[in-house]
Design a protein around this nucleic acid. Structure first.
Lengths: 354, 354
DNA sequence: ACCCTGACGGAAAGCGCATTCCCAAACCTA
DNA sequence: TAGGTTTGGGAATGCGCTTTCCGTCAGGGT
């Protein structure tokens, strides 16, 4: 920290009491007379006074801090949500404390504890919850006392058993995608899924598969990879045998449970001479910003990412600022299927010609 | 903020003084006896004690906070740097305060002031400085007292006239790119530049142009756009007349001063039926993560983005932790030219055939 | 038996600010 | 003019913690 001019310095310099200086320099309920106020403001400006937010937090019992925990800030999914959160926080005059856990549950817990220690007014956890018992249990354990004391928590992903939740309709979105693909004429499917413990990956995979079976189809394969670009790249290899099936009635259509995996998979296939959608179709999930500029442009399920962040902040403080009724602890977010080039059957060259 | 169990609660519960509890719960120089320490730790665990970081900051005169100001956290350039910063901060046990200014100098100044108020131990400003006098002057004005009191500031981009600086060798990188392109056989050039007030844009443009003239070439056009994907998309239109020149000896090679602009430009051209590198060549700058998976893969000048963040943190605290000699206030970062498909002359279809 | 030295706990003074009281002066009503 | 009511400012307390300063007690040397 950096020592600074204190409020009492300003007060002395302005020839008033500290209380008065305090009242002038931050819209207190009691506003001193105009002349005195001006003297104080002048003194503050002259001395280069900056209030000490730590001391204010201590005295006010409010830090004005918002904790944001993401799995990987360099991933466009998270950084776009972070943009929304940061924007909403700034609109409320709050500062954002960021932690990127690099997908380590342990790091996530540590970040949460650090943020609790910093007495953040609210905590937003972004990223799929896990099915692994320990990790979420440790998290809720750390969160419990925080919540009991009036702390606010919102998770973007799946509910944590506590706190609010902004929940994308993953299963519904995947199902809608499956329906759209079938309508478009697709007949052969595979799923590039994520880690089995990630609920987002599981939900999307299950939604897709269930919708498929509702139409009498089933995926020819479900392979799992890391939830990242590299995970998609690696797992894509397992699907190779399914791609060039002779006399197939339709190309293989691969649903990658998120966009970055889809991009990785396409890269892998391209490296092996396969082109999308010439040789197979690919669809993703999220609609991260750059996706439309990708070549081929990627069919996906759009999530309003920046809005997600905004919603999370809104939900966090629902009922806190004059709102009479605390809003629902859960906000389900609708998705939109976006059909693009990567599933264009018209550009399939047909397995027969291979 | 959220009220919590206080240290004195713990002390009372453990039957010791507050001083002792404090000494136990955070590696003080003086370590109490083992039995007492255990009593205190047990009490803390039982009560669910979390230290109040605000109060600690006040008493210790160190907040353990690192301020990070970026232009746009959703831009992969910034989010990747943010990853590096965040990682380095965590390694030092510090928390990261994030502000995304949405490229508004006013917002940048406000963020800096807020961070100063929060008594961050260090401040990292990422993003090109401006040639516009007012904005940087306002910033240095706010920074001056902070620095005078021992505050630390590092800018990633160009020096701010104060504080440290991690400076990518923009001009050199662009020049190297120009040289490589000429060696590869390129003969016709244009520059998709950024806003005239952004020093990064200007430096890259100038470095490229200067190197070109060193080889007897000059850009056929220099058009400016916003420093974003959309900026590239829009500005790309101005280059259309230059692309299909009949009987040209070589395709037009467009240097976009950053990758996201290049991506936007390619999208624009593709929308008009033009393909890269079939109809023209494109090169960017930065080597943002997804670039290799883009189609065509994009020739660019690689900047070690995550390392930039790491360097910034290191520079920030150089000499502060046992290091005897404060390191240089400036760290120049080398770049690497990466040639990929987007400038592949072999895939040019030739202007004659248009 | 004595003094000196360390080791160990506790009391208390802040860190910089918000805020509750309290007091004096000014204002109003009758 | 007297009483009551605002109004504007200051003194002082406390937010939760660190840290200096003291006091006490045990141990060791002579």
């Amino acid at each position: 920290m950096v020592a600074g001019v204190t409020l009492s310095d300003v007060a002395r310099h302005a020839g008033v009491s500290q209380a008065t200086a305090s009242r002038v320099l931050n819209g207190s309920a009691r506003v001193p007379g105009e002349d005195v106020a001006n003297r104080v403001r002048a003194a503050a400006a002259e001395l280069g006074y900056f209030p000490n937010a730590q001391a204010q937090a201590l005295a006010r019992r409010t830090s004005g801090l918002l904790g944001l925990v993401v799995h990987d800030i360099a991933d466009p999914y998270f950084s776009t949500i972070a943009l929304g959160v940061q924007r909403a926080a700034r609109a409320r005059g709050m500062q954002t404390l960021l932690a990127s856990t690099e997908r380590d549950p342990e790091a996530e817990r540590e970040a949460v504890e650090a943020f609790i220690a910093h007495r953040t007014d609210g905590l937003i956890l972004v990223g799929s919850r896990s099915h692994e018992f320990e990790s979420d249990a440790a998290l809720t354990g750390a969160l419990r006392p925080y919540l009991d004391r009036g702390g606010r928590v919102v998770v973007v992903g799946q509910p944590l058993g506590t706190g609010g939740c902004v929940a994308p309709r993953n299963a519904e979105g995947s199902a809608a995608l499956a329906g759209a693909l079938i309508s478009a004429g697709h007949r052969r499917f595979a799923v590039l899924s994520g880690p089995a413990h990630l609920r987002t990956a599981v939900d999307r995979c299950a939604g897709f598969t269930r919708a498929l079976s509702g139409h009498g189809f089933r995926p020819e394969a479900v392979v799992a990879g890391e939830f990242t670009r590299d995970g998609g790249y690696l797992a894509a290899g397992d699907l190779l045998p399914l791609i060039g099936v002779p006399e197939a009635p339709a190309p293989l259509c691969v649903f990658a449970v998120n966009d970055v995996m889809a991009i990785g998979a396409i890269a892998r296939w391209r490296a092996m001479g396969l082109e999308v959608p010439r040789d197979l179709s690919v669809a993703g999930f999220d609609d991260i910003p750059t996706l439309g500029d990708h070549s081929p442009s990627l069919t996906t399920v759009r999530l309003p990412l920046a809005d997600l962040g905004d919603h999370a902040v809104r939900l966090l403080f629902a009922g806190a600022d004059g709102g009479t009724v605390p809003a629902a602890a859960r906000l389900d977010v609708d998705t939109t299927v976006v059909i693009r080039e990567s599933t264009d059957l018209g550009r399939w060259r047909g397995s027969g010609r291979r």
